[in-house]
Design a protein around this nucleic acid. Structure first.
Lengths: 220, 220, 220, 220
DNA sequence: AATGAATGAGGGTTCATTCAT
DNA sequence: TATGAATGAACCCTCATTCAT
């Protein structure tokens, strides 16, 4: 191990740095595209999004886009699919738990919220920007999941056969609440505080509805 | 007054009939366009709506469209502006009244609902299909109106200085509830029944929040 | 029938002229496109043909193209389909007749040639410019038709079970001969004279082959 | 010559091996590209060929391609030029000989065929895939060569001043026959057998034409 | 009052080619 | 030598809009 090997090592290090830099710059342009795509999808939805706009904001040409992604749909996949599985699993967990345990409602809500907050943009795109794509049914699945959870909650409280149209409205309100909470550029702490208040609002609403619906049945 | 004038009169009558018929057919094609545009805006939003589709469904050519309307935006105007004033005035009325009178909340809600139900399509377009148009701020105005109403309600109940972010979320939930209720293809009666339930839900939520927020203040 | 009706008639005539002129100019631009497309398809084949080039040579914009034709494929249809049926029927006629009657070979050839000469461009496009389109099988059908005719001719002459590979070569030579004859910018008369010579060449060739193939069989 | 030089020698040997291997792998990738290009040019013609497809099938990147070849045209050169001279010389030889010797026609045909069979792909590309390239005139040169040969043959047989248009057609048929024969995936033996049959066909045709053309002259 | 033809910018996408490493 | 990323012009096609009639 003389001087020679030292020099060699340094050279290798230099080369290594270079390689890392190249990789980083490559990753950068790819990430720039993804970031720009997120912004564009958020602003104009999938169909309304323009590839040229995405590329311009990412500082590349359209050719570069098609080197990184097969087509417009694939960059939406790249954005959404990593969180889709997570969303589904969390949702499944929550609404299974909600039925079985007593106090898990708020708990489930909190987990849900943390996830949504972490993947804020993805959630927003999924909720409002995927019309006409294969993700449109995913949106519906979300609704169905929540709806099931709500129905179980009613049944557990002694109200069976709730009007499905009522459930639809409640579900859409709740989803909108998530969206509205997320739209504020809050820290996770602030977000949670806000969500707890909304949770209180909804819980009280549920209880009132349960009371009312029980009476209706008796009255008939 | 000879034979000539008689003939002339008859000709005029004929002409008149023709003119009326022409006017009717004109009104028809114009109305067809508006109807088709409503459907298209509802399905695809303003930006996603295609002029070709509108004209095809109205049974006219694009030339006919541009004779009746200056451009795509103007037919949106024609659809929305007649009800915009109404929406605003009703909203203003409601939330002024709400502050002054005691039991007007349910009352205001009902008036609101009737109006929305009557101008269902217009409301739906306004709520979900005007991204990227000059009506996007109008949507915000609505929110502000409701927000003011909500704030007053809180203040009247002894909670001053409510977190505006909380108000935003509540407002958006409420607007979404209107939209969700309207989306069901219900009769006015059924719509009202559904709205009353949601009203119950929201009222209870409000009361719970008021209670909670009062405590918080005391606690501080 | 006074002067009035006369004037009226003249006005109608003027109007008529105008309408005719408009229609002609419209027909013109449409025909220009078709003519330009023929040239372009001939030069570069269907796949290699550029819509911009076609439009430029037709003196219109791409939008005009898509007003007249649904897409690139449809203008190829417009060019080829009118003669396809004719080609097929003539070919069917020829090769049915060839088998039945004695002296119809030259007769059939002549009819074939007249047709091909009349629809020169279409034939050229069909023979050499439809790779990758739905017309590729048509080309094969042509070959099969000729091949069948040739096989029957051999059989009629006492040579059964001719090597299909030999037939393929003969067929392709004959098709190429048609193409080559057509490529000369000849009058129909000159074309026919040239074709008669080629016919003589081919007939003699056939006879020689028949002789040879008969010997081969005997020899075995 | 001490130990040092020994080591050095060994190092050189190692280095040599490495260099050879590198060269081989280089030759390999280069040859892969050429092979892939042949396939691609054959399937889609020069203009229709995709550089991406060539590189993919050669297992290299586009960068590697442009290190080896200046551009798309140059790899076509690499494929065609080595055989172009051969083609031309053989053709020249044949049709010079044909004029001088008696029985060289079949002989020349056979040499021609062997060459074409050996350089099958190159010939096919040259005949059917070079539209729009600088090789299009080469194709014409071939034709001119054959044409000259044919003219001489006619003259030798006592028919002078043959219609050049007739010659064109005969030439194109003969070239097509070569192409058609080659297209069959035959062994050289089978190929020759097929070619002999076609030769018989053409020879008889020629004789018939000579007879006919002589009469015509007499008739005049 | 309406037609039907045309415009030209922009849509997503592919192409041969370049270039830093 | 070769890679992998990027370029930018051109591809076919759609759009809102215009205009002569």
């Amino acid at each position: 191990m003389g001087l020679d090997s030292c020099v060699l090592t340094e050279e290798l290090v230099y080369a290594n740095i270079t390689i890392v830099m190249v990789k980083e710059s490559v990753e950068n342009s790819r990430n720039n595209m993804i970031a720009a795509a997120k912004t564009e999808f958020l602003k104009n939805g999938y169909k309304g999004a323009g590839l040229r706009a995405i590329c311009k904001n990412a500082g590349v040409t359209t050719g570069a886009f098609y080197f990184q992604f097969e087509n417009k749909e694939k960059i939406l996949d790249e954005i959404l699919q990593p969180v889709l599985a997570l969303f589904n699993s969390v949702m499944a967990q929550i609404y299974k738990g909600e039925y079985e345990e007593e106090d898990s409602s708020a708990d489930g809500d909190e987990r849900m919220l943390e996830m949504i907050w972490t993947y804020k943009t993805e959630f927003q795109i999924l909720m409002a920007g995927v019309e006409g794509t294969k993700y449109e049914p995913v949106f519906r699945q979300f609704q169905e999941g929540l709806k099931n959870g709500f129905r179980m909650f009613f049944e557990k409280s002694g109200v069976s056969e709730v009007d499905p149209e009522l459930l639809d409205v409640l579900v859409q309100m709740r989803m909108e609440s998530y969206l509205a909470i997320i739209n504020k550029e809050y820290s996770l702490e602030e977000t949670k505080r806000l969500a707890r208040l909304i949770g209180e609002y909804c819980d009280a609403g549920f209880e009132a509805l349960i009371e009312k619906l029980k009476q209706n049945k008796v009255g008939k």
